[in-house]
């Protein structure tokens, strides 16, 4: 595993995440979120899961990020003045991070080296999607259809009764 690549991606990803969580302007936060998604996709490439990395870029950068930006534009008149920082959230987040860190560093069974690895081809993924995972695949298709219709109904213009 390439150590330099790991460190560079880690710095970029975490900086992007911090920017996404703390920047005052929504557009900037959404664009930083894109950096995080690309960074995570780079990690997937590093870990040998190229297909998932490509799907990640495709779905998150191509679809979710554009959706978020569109929503920001549609609700632009509402610029929330953030009064101070909500310290409760910061404390909870820090506590969760500390707890997770403590657990990770104290679990001995995690200290394993990466096993010998043969690259995962798209064909293998496709075959298992069509054999062992047919039912989850169909359910995901159903969920996506329902989400599509639901989102359309939610944002459909209501008839103005005056």
């Amino acid at each position: 595993m390439n150590a330099t690549a790991f460190i560079v991606i880690a710095i970029i990803t975490i900086a992007g995440a911090l920017a996404a969580a703390t920047l005052p302007k929504l557009i900037h936060a959404a664009l930083s979120l894109v950096i995080v998604f690309v960074g995570i996709a780079a990690y997937f490439f590093l870990l040998g899961a190229e297909f998932v990395g490509l799907v990640q870029v495709f779905v998150y950068v191509g679809a979710v990020a554009v959706l978020i930006l569109f929503t920001i534009l549609l609700t632009r008149r509402d610029i929330v003045s953030e009064r101070g920082i909500n310290w409760g959230g910061v404390i909870v987040a820090l506590a969760v991070f500390g707890g997770l860190l403590w657990i990770i560093l104290n679990t001995t069974s995690l200290a394993v080296l990466a096993p010998q690895f043969e690259p995962l081809t798209v064909k293998q993924i496709g075959e298992s999607l069509m054999t062992d995972y047919v039912w989850p695949l169909q359910c995901v298709g159903l969920v996506l259809t329902v989400a599509l219709i639901g989102a359309l109904i939610l944002v459909m213009e209501e008839k103005i009764e005056r």
């Binding site: 990803t13 996404a20 969580a21 929504l26 929503t71 909500n86 409760g88 959230g89 969760v96 997770l100």
Partner: peptide, 17 residues
């Protein structure tokens, strides 16, 4: 770390997005 930052954003910001 990413998870905690996400939690931070979800808990401490007021804007729904």
């Amino acid at each position: 770390a990413l998870f905690s930052i996400g939690l931070l954003a979800a808990l401490s910001r007021r804007h729904a997005i």
